[in-house]
Nucleic acid binder design. Structure first.
Lengths: 182, 182
DNA sequence: GCAGATGCGTTCATCAATGAACAGATCCCG
DNA sequence: CGGGATCTGTTCATTGATGAACGCATCTGC
């Protein structure tokens, strides 16, 4: 992990935060580069030092979240389901604004749901029970699609309904259900 | 008003915020330059581009607040007392952490109370009623000291007690009392 | 249709922030 | 007392951010 210049980290952080905020206020397509720069308190030209355009910025924003969740996979892979899921729901809670915005916005980035699903299914692949024999009549693609859409769906519900249960409770219940499905 | 480079504004803002935060956690004398830099996410050397040392930083932090309140004077000087005080109490409320820290900390910057008092008395000087004749038996220094300490005292009480009344209510009551005293 | 306005992407000289290093001061523990 | 550790204030080459300008494209309304 090469440590990045703190100036770069700060401006990128500010830019990502600005995009999320603006997306709660208007459609992504209606957001202008100048608005992002103003909101982030950054020179307009500075954006182009890091990103191609606003679509690239949004893309990298999504990517960074998926990567961060990917890193949590490695920490969690040796834990029981319900323990492993706690940090995930805490992450969703912490980045509430991002997830609610990305899951709600009806415009171009509806692809987010798909990318999230793909990412989850990729992670589930190594969690399928292949030993006990209880899944011999099930194929991987069906199990992955089933568990993946269920997981995305429950997160979507949880976020959009103002997170009615604390992360720990969600982790326990969803952990139980995912364990039964894989 | 020459516009300052936004990089300068950002780092100074971060440094001031860092100092206030750290002062809520430990005595000012125990705070190290490195801690301030870390908290502000700024290189240690950068501090010396703007300030002599941490005392200068604290000094300029106080100064900037007094100046900002001084600018509010000019906007407010032609209003009635109770209207003029509203933005002040809103300012105290907004910068709650600063005022509570500065008024509470028992160490070296107990001078803050004195500086605040001096600043208020300076502002009151032009508000004394010299026309109606009801103050002919009173001297300026007595009135200023009386109203000044009362004002500082009531702010101190309000802040330390968790701002039990909204700014508008405080402004009305304190406005009435100050009007009677000057 | 065209003129003004707005947004985009890029350029460049200038300035601010970085981080690493340095010597000196002070602290503190053995 | 001595020496390791920590904090300070300063230096400097390097890198990132700035803001102003530019040409170009796309709207918008007269």
């Amino acid at each position: 992990m090469v440590k990045v210049d703190r100036r770069i980290a700060k401006t990128q952080e500010a830019l990502k935060k600005a995009v999320i905020e603006l997306m709660t206020e208007k459609n992504f397509d209606d957001i202008t580069i100048q608005e992002i720069a103003d909101r982030a308190d950054v020179n307009r030209g500075t954006i182009y030092l890091h990103y191609q355009d606003k679509f690239d910025l949004l893309d990298r924003l999504i990517e960074s979240h998926l990567n961060e969740m990917g890193e949590m996979d490695e920490w969690a892979c040796e834990l029981e389901w319900k323990d492993a899921l706690v940090p995930y729901f805490e992450y969703f809670e912490k980045n509430y604004l991002f997830f609610s915005t990305m899951l709600a916005s009806k415009g171009a980035p509806s692809s987010f749901r798909t990318r999230l699903l793909t990412s989850f299914m990729e992670g589930f692949k190594y969690e399928i029970d292949r030993d006990s024999g209880r899944n011999t009549n099930l194929t991987d693609d069906v199990m992955l699609q089933y568990a993946g859409t269920a997981y995305v769906g429950i997160i979507e519900w949880w976020i959009k309904n103002g997170m009615p249960h604390p992360p720990r409770v969600m982790a326990e219940q969803v952990g139980t259900l995912l364990g039964r499905s894989l």
